[in-house]
Simulated scan of single mutants.
Amino acid sequence: MRSIWKGAISFGLVTIPVKLYSATEQKDVTFHQVHREDGGRIRYKRVCTQDGEEVPYSDIAKGYELATGEMVVLTDEDFEDLPLSTSRRIDVLQFTPAEQIDPIYFAKSYYLEPDAQGAKPYVLLRDALESSGQVAVVKVALRQRESLATLRVRDGVFVLETMLWPDEIRAPDFAFLEEDIEVRAQELSMAESLISTMESDFDPSEYHDTYREALQQVIEAKVAGKEVIAAPEEEEARPAVDLMAALRASVEAAKREREGEPAKPKKAASKAKQAKEGEEKAPPKRKTRKSA
């Protein structure tokens, strides 16, 4: 891994030099926009809407559009004068229980590695934080943007998780929250039973990106000049008419799946049975003569 930022954790009078690394990476299959006929790459030019001329990257600045449509142009010098007091510093603001922070605030995760002579104070703060069972709430500036963040310990390493500001979290303003929806005790009990049946320890290695794998197979097949076989379409789930019956069937299916038994297609079996009974009851067909 390559570090993307260098700074220091400021903890009281203690300063711990650290390097910052991105803790996650996207595994998406990337594409280029190409000409359908010959596969040539599509290039875009940076053209000014005022004079129609192509603009070199060195002449491009950031602009903030006002409600009137006027544009305020900001230069690099304008950003340099901004009061980013936490620039190159991770300031510890407080310590708090992790369960008090809603996961909706978390944005991106980074690893922190001790730099230079910072290994001993790094390990000291790490062990103290881990034994306390809390997380550190900090403030940090990354890419000219100040963010709240938390420091926690994972596999012996500090993880810095940047957070959104409170005014960046949308309120769930949905109409159904104002409705008086009645849930019967039997339905609630059956739903709780379904949850209990499906309960297990979380193992992320059990899950994988089936879409990305299928897409990769399509690409490999086209490279090899083979015919691409479409995956079977899954039946679209429809809203349950009888909620109680749907919950009961879900509990039974979950139990069978946990016991390793394949789910029995009840509907298909009943239709086949009805068709067979119809054939047995149906009278023999009469032969009709063809006219000369």
Results as ranks from 00 to 15, higher is better:
residue 1 M to Q: 10
residue 3 S to D: 12
residue 3 S to H: 13
residue 8 A to V: 04
residue 9 I to A: 00
residue 9 I to P: 00
residue 9 I to Y: 00
residue 13 L to M: 05
residue 16 I to W: 09
residue 17 P to M: 05
residue 25 E to G: 10
residue 29 V to T: 15
residue 32 H to A: 06
residue 33 Q to R: 08
residue 36 R to F: 04
residue 38 D to A: 02
residue 41 R to T: 07
residue 48 C to S: 08
residue 49 T to A: 10
residue 49 T to P: 14
residue 55 V to S: 04
residue 56 P to H: 01
residue 56 P to W: 02
residue 57 Y to D: 12
residue 58 S to K: 10
residue 61 A to G: 03
residue 68 T to R: 00
residue 69 G to T: 00
residue 70 E to I: 02
residue 72 V to A: 08
residue 76 D to L: 14
residue 80 E to G: 14
residue 82 L to H: 02
residue 83 P to F: 03
residue 88 R to D: 02
residue 91 D to Y: 09
residue 98 A to P: 00
residue 98 A to M: 06
residue 100 Q to T: 12
residue 102 D to S: 01
residue 104 I to N: 01
residue 108 K to R: 14
residue 111 Y to A: 00
residue 113 E to H: 13
residue 114 P to H: 01
residue 116 A to C: 08
residue 118 G to M: 07
residue 120 K to H: 10
residue 120 K to Q: 11
residue 120 K to S: 14
residue 121 P to G: 10
residue 122 Y to F: 11
residue 124 L to C: 10
residue 125 L to T: 01
residue 137 V to Q: 06
residue 137 V to F: 03
residue 138 V to H: 06
residue 141 A to F: 07
residue 141 A to I: 13
residue 142 L to S: 08
residue 143 R to C: 08
residue 148 L to N: 05
residue 149 A to D: 02
residue 149 A to T: 02
residue 150 T to W: 01
residue 154 R to L: 12
residue 158 F to K: 02
residue 161 E to T: 04
residue 169 I to Y: 04
residue 172 P to I: 10
residue 172 P to E: 05
residue 172 P to Y: 01
residue 172 P to W: 03
residue 177 L to F: 15
residue 177 L to P: 09
residue 185 A to M: 10
residue 186 Q to N: 13
residue 188 L to C: 12
residue 188 L to E: 14
residue 189 S to D: 09
residue 190 M to L: 15
residue 190 M to K: 11
residue 197 T to A: 15
residue 199 E to M: 14
residue 199 E to P: 02
residue 202 F to W: 04
residue 205 S to Q: 06
residue 205 S to Y: 02
residue 207 Y to L: 14
residue 208 H to F: 15
residue 219 I to V: 14
residue 219 I to E: 08
residue 219 I to C: 10
residue 221 A to D: 07
residue 224 A to Q: 14
residue 226 K to I: 09
residue 229 I to Y: 01
residue 234 E to V: 07
residue 234 E to T: 11
residue 238 R to S: 11
residue 241 V to D: 14
residue 242 D to E: 08
residue 247 L to A: 07
residue 252 E to H: 10
residue 253 A to S: 14
residue 266 K to E: 11
residue 268 A to P: 09
residue 272 A to R: 12
residue 273 K to E: 09
residue 275 A to T: 13
residue 275 A to G: 08
residue 276 K to T: 03
residue 277 E to P: 04
residue 278 G to R: 10
residue 286 R to M: 15
